[in-house]
Design a protein around this nucleic acid. Structure first.
Lengths: 232, 232
DNA sequence: AGCTAGAGGATTGTTCAACGATTCATCAAG
DNA sequence: CTTGATGAATCGTTGAACAATCCTCTAGCT
């Protein structure tokens, strides 16, 4: 009976791959990629007609894709004006960090009761970041950093927290575009992440939480400073 | 200059009200109401043609409304099968409570630094619940209870937390439909809420947090027990 | 009887074309 | 320089059409 249940579980887990057929979702994937990597900078207006022709889909399908991305907070929809790539304000950055503080500290506190594999997963992303740094791929370092923090909240083993966290970090990528040099923003935190991972594995959750909060303070301050400079 | 800034802030805060016009959003409002109040019980299939004719909107517009509500987790969309009113599983209920524990305890801890008006707001909803109970309007008691808990997370003064919390509680209403008697589910917590509000106002945040966690345990257990009974 | 396979109808997925509504840019008048 | 009007461009919504998929019901088989 257990084997049967396992098999059923594995099958139903694979289902989303099959359903992956909707044209709108494919379009959303393409656009998401372009927004995240900066090809479509914040503030860009996405014309229905232009993009529809470019991607060869109808306006209806495109609008559906726009809605998907609006819900992910990557695009904003203004009535009768169209959709634009989200422009994160300084207040948004602060709010995102406020929520990260809540979720990630909760994650650290959950490390005590989380399965060891989950805690090991946190460390794995630290190593990914390290090796990406060695090859000078700072975009990859950024990705590893995000995975690291997602792994921390994954300790809570809550699907809803996972999804919220994923969306928060995707949003935050919009803010990274104001940072000129990716390296200066990501490099300093490689050591911090490693230290936090070690503290988690060693079970010193209290110090891990303190280190994490310190990281938030400096990272947020750095981003906000960049905002103040490129002001508006 | 400050008066000018205040005035500008108030104006821009009123902007969303003006934008409120899209047909899809209006349709979504209507459907949301019907889902939340139980007119459309979980599992109901929402036929595009039927509802489209009923509300006098085209299929395209209706599908857009469906998508909005799917993103709010009130409807589920199954490819080539249609949209259904979400059916919350026991695991969903547990997950929602897990997230509420995280957000609301953070809210209680933020009470120390929150403005006194915000803390007073918490108590106000307790009183609303009390007076609704006196008239026997248990649905209103439920609404007041939700507002009470939203006021707790509002102490964090974070727009994103507010929105997440609003969506969590709307989702949770889907679970309430398995409870036969609303009274037996809402009445016991009137006293709990009052006690928590008093502790918050008195500044005893530690005890408030303990009481809140105890509330979560009993409320969650009660819901899950109801699920186990009406099984499947 | 019970089960399987297949035909047919119903519903959704997607596209297209059209029209009214709204916004934006331009330009003339004060 | 501001105000007001005009017109082009774009969005919002509708209706229709066709393909793809699902569901039901029937016919046929063991």
């Amino acid at each position: 009976m257990t084997a049967m249940a396992d098999w059923a579980a594995r099958l139903s887990a694979a289902r989303p791959v099959l359903d992956r057929a909707s044209a709108a979702e494919l379009v959303a994937d393409v656009l998401r990629e372009n927004v995240i990597d900066g090809s479509l900078p914040p503030g860009t207006r996405l014309s229905e007609e232009t993009i529809g022709n470019l991607l060869g889909v109808s306006r209806n399908t495109l609008r559906e894709a726009f809605r998907l991305l609006s819900h992910e907070n990557l695009l904003v929809h203004e009535l009768h004006r169209g959709v634009f790539v989200r422009k994160l304000a300084a207040a948004d950055v602060a709010d995102i960090y406020a929520m990260r503080r809540i979720l990630e500290t909760a994650g650290v506190r959950a490390a005590a009761t989380a399965p060891p594999e989950a805690v090991a997963e946190v460390r794995r992303h630290v190593e990914d970041g390290r090796s990406a740094a060695e090859t000078g791929d700072w975009a990859a370092v950024g990705t590893a950093n995000m995975r690291f923090h997602r792994a921390i909240t994954a300790l809570l083993a809550s699907p809803r927290v996972d999804e919220t966290m994923a969306r928060l970090l995707a949003e935050l990528r919009l803010a990274f575009h104001v940072m000129g040099e990716l390296r200066t923003f990501h490099e300093p935190y490689l050591g911090d992440n490693a230290r936090i991972a070690t503290l988690l594995i060693d079970g010193d959750h209290e110090r891990a939480e303190r280190e994490l909060l310190a990281y938030f303070d400096t990272a947020e301050a750095q981003l906000l400073a960049a905002y103040a400079e490129r002001a508006v």
